[in-house]
Design a binder for these strands. Structure first.
Lengths: 229, 229
DNA sequence: AAAGCCCATATTGTTGACAATATTAGAGGT
DNA sequence: ACCTCTAATATTGTCAACAATATGGGCTTT
């Protein structure tokens, strides 16, 4: 299942925890469509649990911005509009720029060589057919995740990245995948890592920001046309 | 009570909602001390409600990073270490820098004149004795909040600022207040607004970042010495 | 026939009881 | 006297029934 890369090996000792993870994955992967209504009783029966823990999971998802709800009228999976996606990518550009800058200042030699190894693995993965899919999802996030790790800002890692990345994944889900992107992205990753390796904070930030904003342009382009209202 | 400046006029039609707001205020204002244990039954009796809605509120606070908990072993109010505060201010610097930049690009004339008016009000408030206190809390946030508003990034405003500002308030709570800061801060606000008024995005970002990082230096200095471990 | 009101129904919000788990105090052994 | 194991207690996690509220369809009224 390999999604514990980001959701740091959840213990899931309680039903509510497990349900939270399940629901989150269902939403992010698109099994629960955007905007679809969430009926507590139905979902509870479906997962074979009571409404109590389910409600807990729902309210936590609400806190993670994956679910919206109006009192007494039920909850729905969030609907990502193009405007929201733009905003999410704006925030992401800012935060990841910061990550890269801080990482360039604080990264250690072992971390650097680990990252080079990771990028080499990615190169091989891209060569394989199914690897492309991997790279455009977990693999890509892996790189960004480790940069954030190296930034030394634990708070950012724990409380923002995880939330934000769920949403970025949902954005990706909506947009078609382009075949030539992985190689280009890998190249940009190499440039970024190069700057970080040389502890060039300013350049690292610039390259990371450009990488993200480029990524947004691609995603936006491939987005289905939206009915403006 | 005047704290609906940030927590956008909550309807609070449900007990859980109301409890969430109450608990949040109790934590942010320091009524519930950092690190103090939260016993569900006690709190429920205290608020005159059942454990159900209280649990809901607690779990939402968990999502807002104001409460931490370990399964079956209870919840505690988060304890802000100096390291965490640094990290929070780092994130804040990045996001508010972005806000200022975007605001400079998108702000409208009416918004600009409103902000100038606000700063004039602040000047008068500072002259009064009790105004200083106001400025260092709600008033200060008001300015930053409106910049974020002007940035046009609704997502940032809704989902990050509110969360982050609770924590910044807690940081402030811990640190003593310095008397000469308000006037200096007001001056910096004026500079920032000047840059925004002229739609100078780059300068606005730089000034805002400097403003925040300066603010952190002050807060850090006034922080009680921490037992390093 | 269309608009608005009202009631039946479905769904959410709340409660108190019950089960599972951790914490604590005390007894017993070394 | 100190450590360990065990049992009692306190606290959290889960459940199912009950209350409050919104949604939708049918009825009346104009």
């Amino acid at each position: 299942m390999r999604n514990n890369v980001i959701s740091k090996s959840g213990e899931q000792s309680t039903i509510a925890d497990r349900t939270y993870e399940q629901l989150k994955n269902a939403i992010v992967s698109g099994v629960l469509a955007q905007g679809s209504k969430i009926v507590e009783e139905d979902l509870a029966r479906q997962y074979g649990i009571s409404r109590g823990p389910l409600r807990e999971a729902i309210h936590r998802l609400k806190g993670s911005n994956l679910i919206v709800s109006i009192p007494h009228a039920g909850s729905r999976v969030v609907t990502l509009t193009q405007q929201m996606m733009l905003e999410i990518y704006e925030v992401r550009e800012s935060l990841e720029g910061m990550s890269a800058r801080l990482a360039a200042e604080k990264i250690t030699e072992p971390q650097i060589s680990d990252l080079w190894k990771l990028l080499n693995e990615h190169e091989q993965a891209i060569a394989q057919t199914d690897g492309k899919n991997y790279f455009q999802n977990e693999g890509n996030f892996d790189f960004h995740f480790r940069i954030a790790e190296a930034s030394g800002n634990q708070w950012l890692l724990d409380h923002l990245y995880i939330e934000l990345y769920q949403l970025v994944r949902m954005c990706r889900q909506q947009s078609a995948q382009t075949p030539e992107r992985p190689a280009k992205a890998l190249n940009e990753h190499r440039q970024i890592l190069e700057a970080i390796s040389q502890h060039d904070a300013e350049l690292a930030e610039i390259l990371m920001r450009r990488h993200i904003s480029g990524s947004w342009k691609i995603v936006k382009q491939l987005l289905p046309k939206e009915n403006h209202e």
